[in-house]
Design a protein around this nucleic acid. Structure first.
Lengths: 137, 137
DNA sequence: GGCATAATTGCAACCAGGTGCAATTACAAT
DNA sequence: ATTGTAATTGCACCTGGTTGCAATTATGCC
């Protein structure tokens, strides 16, 4: 809901396609692939073009409503809620765990101090193996 | 050189195409994009197909001769030398800086301790803005 | 050197994601 | 309710990277 509102705020048009896309990322509390969002949208409104979906997601990202991260080879999108900004995602089972803000803060600081590099690791998705998947060979 | 030797060791064939690809990543001391490698190879041997290049690079990566990392939207390849395994790369000017091994080690440990996640951040490329690019608007 | 054969190549087709452009449509003003 | 217009859509095509498959070739063996 907040998403469509934010779009309006920016003087952008509120099309049924956009409403559906916002609905998808709003209603489904997970990291969605573009594929999944496209499917969701097309179920309720066949004929919606994938480029519309990609463009809307880009818009929502710019508006700060949605985060996009790359997980291995595909992009995943999730609703931007304050509080937990980066995530551990298991590369095998796909399970995702939110982790604390401060985890990479010190590394960020180090990079700035030592190398003068300005990086933002807040929305980074770290891919690895979860306990369960690491155990089974 | 070591690269082609490693391939031989594994019972793989040493084709002129592969020799050239190995030469590229061996001779040019930078993060090369696939594009650049393809160009290099095709200059010396026109007609070499991109899929050959991609497949060889994959092979070399599996053999541990080459690291592949994603930088923003494209893959970059570089010769695997021991010592400096992760890199800061400026998203604007492309400048690349090797950084210390231990930078992310503590973060890695934290992730393991707190969340049971097993991650490997050694070959990660961190993209950000270098001092120069951060200063100009 | 010639031969067998498994590995490798080039091709053509595919995938996710992105882009330029003409046709359509949401919205503001009347 | 109509209209004007700028934003948005769908389309068709493009990109980097990947894959299946038939044709080619590097290597081991005689």
């Amino acid at each position: 809901m907040s998403c469509v509102f934010t779009l309006k705020q920016k003087g952008l048009k509120l099309t049924p396609q956009r409403r559906l896309i916002a609905e998808a990322i709003h209603d489904i509390p997970a990291h969605l692939s573009a594929e999944e969002i496209i499917t969701y949208v097309q179920e309720k409104m066949p004929g919606v073009n994938k480029s519309t979906v990609y463009r809307t997601l880009e818009l929502l990202e710019e508006a700060g409503c949605v985060y996009r991260s790359r997980i291995d080879d595909t992009f995943v999108y999730h609703h931007a809620e304050e509080g937990h900004h980066h995530h551990l995602v298991c590369r095998k089972c796909g399970k995702s765990v939110d982790c604390d803000e401060d985890l990479l803060a010190s590394a960020e600081q180090e990079v700035a101090d030592r190398y003068g590099f300005k990086v933002d690791l807040k929305h980074v998705v770290i891919s690895g193996l979860c306990q369960a998947c690491a155990h089974e060979t």
